[in-house]
Design a protein around this nucleic acid. Structure first.
Lengths: 277, 277
DNA sequence: AAGGGCTTTCCACGATACGGAAGCCTGTGT
DNA sequence: ACACAGGCTTCCGTATCGTGGAAAGCCCTT
C-alpha cells in the first residue's frame, strides 16, 4: 500500500521559516484581509485569488467564513469583496488601547541616542502647535520645552512639518485665518512660505533656523494618522553650533525614519508624497 | 486494519447549521479577535481560551499565527493579549469605503415605510445642527427640509438627541458658549433643559413639540460613532395632528431601533446608556 | 445557441490542525 | 531553599478538516 505511491513528494516544506507553529488557513485568511484593505474599491474573487496566489475555491471558502462573521462583505451585483464592519469594530479596540505619547517616547528615545540631541513631540491645536513631550539629551547646552508650551505654526519646524502634510483645503483655510494673529510681521503666509512647504514635502523634513529662538535650530518630520493626515510631529533641536548645515540632511533622514516607524506602529497611513531616496 | 476501529463515529456533524462551508480554524480565530476587542485591557491565554471555549494549546497556536501578522499583540510582562495594529489598519479600509449618508438612507426609507412620516438625517456642526438628507412621505401635508439647512441645537429633536448623547464635558462646554447666541430668550440651557436631556437618555428618543416650527412635531434618536459619541441623528417629523401624544412613544421606539441598526451596520459603539424595554 | 469568464459547489485525498499531555518557566508559600 | 502551583509553551500521534481540481451553475456577450 502506498509503498511509493507518489515517491514521497519532494518535501517542499519551507526551511522552517517561522519560529512558532503556524495555522495555514488562518495565515491565508489574514493575507486576504490585508489585500482587501489595500484595494478600497473592492476585489473580485479571481483577482483576489490571484493576488494571494491561492486557488479560487480555497479563496472562496475562506471568504465565506469571513463573511459569516462580517469581517468581509460581498457586494452582490458588482461581485466585489471588501472589508466588513466587524474588521472595523475589532480594529477600533486597538485605537482605544494605544496611548500615543508613551508609545512615541520609546521611538524618540532611540532617536535621541542616534542623534545625540534633544527630541520633541508636538501636535496641532487650532492655529498653534503644542508640545507634548521631550526626551532630553545629555549635552550641557540644550533646549528645554515644557510639555504644554505653545508656539506659532509658521516659525517652528514641527509646525511647518504639520502644515506641509495638511490637505490643501485645510492649509488654505489657515492662510485665510492668518492676519488676526498677534505677530507683527504682516502677511506671514507669503508665496515664499508656500514654496518652503513644498520643499518640506519633497525632502521629508522641515527646518527651523533660529526662527523660534535665537541660537536654536530644529529639524522635524511628521507622523500620519489613519487617514493620511498629520497627527503630530517629532523634532530634533539643538544649538546652531551643533546642528550644522552639513548635519541637517543627516538629522532630517533620522527624524523622518523615526516618524515613519511611529506612523507604522501606530497604524497610521503614510502619505504617498514620498520622500527621501 | 482499522476496519472498524471506532465503529464509524456517530456522525455528530451538526445538522447542517450553516449554508456555506466553514473553515473551523478561521472561525475560531475570528471569535478570538472579537473577544479581544471586547476586553480593552487585554486577556491572558487561559482567560481567552475559556471565553472562546477552546483548549489553550489551540488558542495559543491561533494567537501566534495572528501575532505573526500583527493582528494581535502580546504584552510580555503582563502576559496579556490584545488587538494589534494590523487589525486597525484593515478595519480602517472599512471606514474609508463606507459612505454614510447613502447607507443611512436605506434604513431611513424602511423607517418611513413603517412610520408613514417624513424621516430626516442631521448632524452637528459647531453649535448648530445641519440636515443631511430627507426621505419624504406621501402625505400632502409634510415637512420639507432642504439638505444643508441649519437649526439651533436646543429647539430641534435631532439637536436634543445629539446633545443628550454627548460626553458631559462637551455638553458643559456648549452651555458656556451659549449666551453669545442670537436667540432672544436668554439662558436657554436652564436646569429644566438639563432634565429634558436626562429624560432623552432614559427613553432613547427626543421630542420637538412645535419648538422649531409651529404645527410640527419631531421625534429623534441618535446614531453613535465608533467611540460611542453622537455621529448624527434621525428624526421623524410631521404635523401635530398626526404625531399625536399616543403615537409619540411608538414612533420613538421605531426611530430608536432604526438608529441602533444604523449604528451597528456602520460600526458604531452603541452607548451603554440603555434605553427602552 | 453556443461560448467565454466568472462564481459556487462537490468530493476523495492526505496534509494539516487538533488537543491531551508533558515540559518549562516564574512567582509564592512554607 | 525547596517544592508547589498555575500559568505559558512545545511536542506528537491521530483523524479531522482543509485542500484544490474538476464540474456544475450563472450570467453576459457573440
Amino acid at each position: 500500500m502506498t509503498t511509493s505511491t507518489k515517491t514521497k513528494p519532494p518535501v517542499k516544506k519551507k526551511p522552517s521559516s517561522e519560529r512558532s507553529p503556524q495555522v495555514q488557513s488562518l495565515s491565508r485568511a489574514l493575507v486576504i484581509l490585508e489585500k482587501l484593505s489595500e484595494h478600497d474599491g473592492g476585489l473580485s474573487l479571481t483577482e483576489l485569488a490571484h493576488l494571494c496566489e491561492l486557488p479560487t475555491s480555497t479563496t472562496h471558502r475562506l471568504l465565506t467564513t469571513l463573511e459569516n462573521k462580517r469581517f468581509v462583505r460581498f457586494n452582490r451585483g458588482s461581485n466585489l469583496w471588501s472589508v466588513g464592519v466587524q474588521s472595523f469594530v475589532v480594529g477600533n479596540a486597538f485605537a482605544r488601547s494605544r496611548n500615543f505619547v508613551p508609545m512615541a517616547k520609546i521611538f524618540m528615545r532611540h532617536l535621541m541616542d542616534k542623534a545625540g540631541e534633544t527630541v520633541n513631540l508636538a501636535t496641532q491645536d487650532h492655529e498653534e502647535i503644542v508640545y507634548l513631550a521631550q526626551v532630553e539629551c545629555k549635552e550641557m547646552m540644550r533646549a528645554f520645552v515644557r510639555p504644554g508650551l505653545r508656539a506659532p505654526m509658521h516659525c517652528s519646524a514641527v509646525g511647518k512639518a504639520i502644515m506641509a502634510a495638511m490637505p490643501e483645503v485645510e492649509r488654505t483655510r489657515m492662510f485665510n485665518i492668518q492676519g488676526v494673529g498677534n505677530d507683527t510681521r504682516s502677511n506671514i503666509y507669503t508665496p515664499d512660505f508656500m514654496n518652503t512647504l513644498d520643499a518640506v514635502r519633497e525632502c521629508g523634513y522641515a527646518l527651523d533656523d533660529e526662527e523660534q529662538s535665537v541660537g536654536m535650530r530644529c529639524v522635524a518630520s511628521v507622523i500620519y494618522d489613519e487617514n493620511g493626515g498629520p497627527l503630530a510631529a517629532v523634532s530634533i533641536s539643538g544649538p546652531t553650533a551643533r546642528i550644522t548645515d552639513k548635519r541637517i540632511p543627516v538629522l532630517g533622514k533620522l527624524v523622518n525614519q523615526t516618524c515613519r516607524d511611529i506612523t507604522e506602529s501606530f497604524g497610521g497611513r503614510p502619505s504617498e508624497n514620498v520622500i527621501l531616496p
